[in-house]
Simulated assay, not measured.
Amino acid sequence: MKEVYFYTRPQCPLCEEAKRTLELVREEIAFRMYEMNINESDELTEKYGLMIPVIEVDGEIVQYGEVDYPTIRLRLDD
């Protein structure tokens, strides 16, 4: 089963939209999702602060900022 890391932070409209997109994809393709609040880690804030939301699948960044359904679904379906 694929693992998806979803880097986010509170009060982030793009993050909320990305989460809804991930949930839609999850209705069709099973995957393990780990939601990471970057505000809880200086390292994550430094790494992803200007990029969030960030979607990482099996260690590879698939999308950040604007997240779309077709790209995420295609990556999880391979």
Score class of each variant (00 low, 15 high):
37 N>G: 04
66 E>A: 11
72 I>F: 08
69 Y>K: 06
20 R>G: 09
42 D>L: 14
53 P>K: 07
22 L>P: 05
23 E>M: 11
23 E>S: 13
11 Q>E: 14
11 Q>A: 13
78 D>L: 15
69 Y>R: 02
55 I>T: 13
4 V>L: 07
49 G>Y: 11
50 L>Q: 05
76 L>K: 08
64 Y>H: 13
75 R>F: 10
67 V>R: 06
53 P>V: 03
39 N>V: 00
39 N>W: 14
50 L>S: 12
70 P>M: 05
42 D>P: 06
18 A>I: 04
78 D>T: 13
67 V>N: 09
58 D>F: 07
28 E>H: 13
71 T>E: 05
32 R>P: 00
59 G>C: 06
70 P>F: 04
61 I>W: 01
51 M>Q: 13
54 V>N: 03
11 Q>S: 14
28 E>Y: 11
40 E>N: 10
6 F>C: 05
6 F>Q: 06
56 E>A: 03
27 E>Y: 07
37 N>M: 03
46 E>V: 08
19 K>R: 12
9 R>A: 15
1 M>W: 07
18 A>G: 09
18 A>V: 05
12 C>N: 00
22 L>W: 04
5 Y>W: 12
21 T>S: 06
32 R>E: 14
35 E>L: 03
48 Y>L: 06
11 Q>R: 15
19 K>T: 03
64 Y>I: 01
57 V>T: 12
78 D>F: 12
24 L>K: 15
42 D>I: 13
59 G>K: 14
29 I>L: 15
50 L>P: 01
65 G>L: 08
31 F>W: 10
18 A>Q: 05
35 E>Y: 02
33 M>Q: 12
4 V>G: 03
55 I>F: 04
53 P>M: 01
70 P>W: 09
45 T>Y: 04
2 K>M: 08
